[in-house]
Design a protein around this nucleic acid. Structure first.
Length: 109
DNA sequence: GGCGTGACCCCAT
DNA sequence: TATGGGGCCACGC
């Protein structure tokens, strides 16, 4: 089993499933892993050095705010706008519209 | 082996 | 509608 992978390692795997123009929330990722470790998810992103391998910029807060980013929140917004995500005042419009939901198969138990 | 930190979330005021 | 406080988990030292 891939249980040998750390929690954050699983988070990176899930991020790769997010298509362009779509976003997800930290809470959604934690829920996909059947855990409440939203905190750990954020820590995992902060520890993520593979910005080009893991689209961590597609992860936003449940409130709709883009949240933080290794290169700065401003850079994160620019990337999302470039992918077609509508953002105003640093917050996503119609979060549910761009919200991406994970499937059971994508969830590594 | 234990404690503090953090790219958070939710509820109450 | 905006702001504050408390709580949760995994990881590093």
């Amino acid at each position: 089993m891939n249980n040998s992978q750390s929690f954050k390692q699983k988070c990176y795997a899930l991020l790769k499933f997010i298509p362009e123009g779509k976003v997800t929330t930290y809470n959604e990722i934690a829920r996909a892993l059947h855990s409440k470790a939203w905190r750990a998810v954020g820590s995992a992103m902060a520890s993520n050095k593979q910005l080009f391998t893991v689209p961590c910029h597609r992860v936003v807060r449940s409130d709709g705010a883009v949240g933080q980013y290794a290169l700065g929140s401003g850079k994160k917004i620019a990337l999302l706008l470039s992918e077609g995500v509508e953002i105003s005042n640093g917050k996503i419009n119609n979060l549910e519209k761009f919200m991406h939901r994970f499937s059971s198969r994508q969830v590594a138990s």
